[in-house]
């Protein structure tokens, strides 16, 4: 027994900086239009890439631009390995975020950032799949256009299996180094048969 304990400890992988959701969150699955060209894309187009999935809107005055820039910082720290990562920005405000607006916004942050837009129904189903909350309230009754959305980022491995949940990159002290290390680790690892099985679920 005394011998077994250290052996188990040796086998344990170091903890992630972000929240490990392997085996507990749904795999990557979506059908949305890409900005600005309007091409219909699905999870199959992302195979072989580490995918970060985020729900936001381009008129967001605070959380979204800070999140995108902090993720951009983390990607910069990865160097060439950043080319293996795609950040999918799904707009929760398709009324104002046209494909053109979304495309222009994404281009500010670089080639790793992909803007996606869906119908209200596609968006609702996708948000429900990942337990992401959002609401859009048109102006009226003394208030302006109001949009509320979660700031979490889901991270999926090369096979589309959910791996990590990044709580918020728009906090006062975002863990940019931690995110960079987690992403680097994912780019170096390859999905196991169990992970590939999870991605099919």
């Amino acid at each position: 027994m005394a011998l077994a304990a250290p052996l188990v400890a040796c086998d344990q992988a170091p903890p992630w900086h972000d929240i490990d959701v392997s085996g507990t969150s749904p795999s990557l699955s979506f059908t949305l239009r890409r900005a600005p060209d309007g091409k219909l894309v699905t999870q199959a187009d992302m195979r072989g890439k580490i995918v970060m999935l985020y729900f936001g809107y381009t008129f967001c005055p605070d959380v979204c631009p800070l999140t995108l820039q902090n993720v951009n910082q983390a990607l910069t720290r990865l160097g060439p390995a950043a080319s293996e990562i795609r950040f999918l920005f799904v707009t929760v405000d398709p009324n104002r975020d046209s494909l053109n607006v979304l495309g222009q916004y994404m281009s500010l942050f670089g080639p790793n950032f992909v803007g996606l837009r869906g119908t209200p129904d596609q968006l609702a189903r996708l948000a429900q799949r990942y337990r992401v909350a959002y609401s859009v309230t048109p102006p009226g009754n003394g208030h302006g256009y109001e949009v509320i959305h979660s700031a979490v980022i889901y991270v999926f491995d090369q096979s589309g299996a959910a791996k990590l949940l990044v709580p918020s990159m728009a906090s006062q002290t975002p863990d940019i180094d931690g995110l960079a290390e987690d992403l680097q680790r994912l780019t170096r690892s390859h999905p196991t048969w169990l992970g590939k099985l999870e991605a099919l679920v």
């Binding site: 381009t58 631009p65 800070l66 995108l68 820039q69 902090n70 916004y105 500010l108 670089g110 940019i176």
Partner: peptide, 18 residues
């Protein structure tokens, strides 16, 4: 203004427009 700074300042254009 268009793409942010190396130290991580967000691009101004995101909010103030291109």
């Amino acid at each position: 203004y268009m793409h942010g700074s190396p130290e991580g300042a967000a691009p101004c254009a995101a909010c103030h427009g291109l």
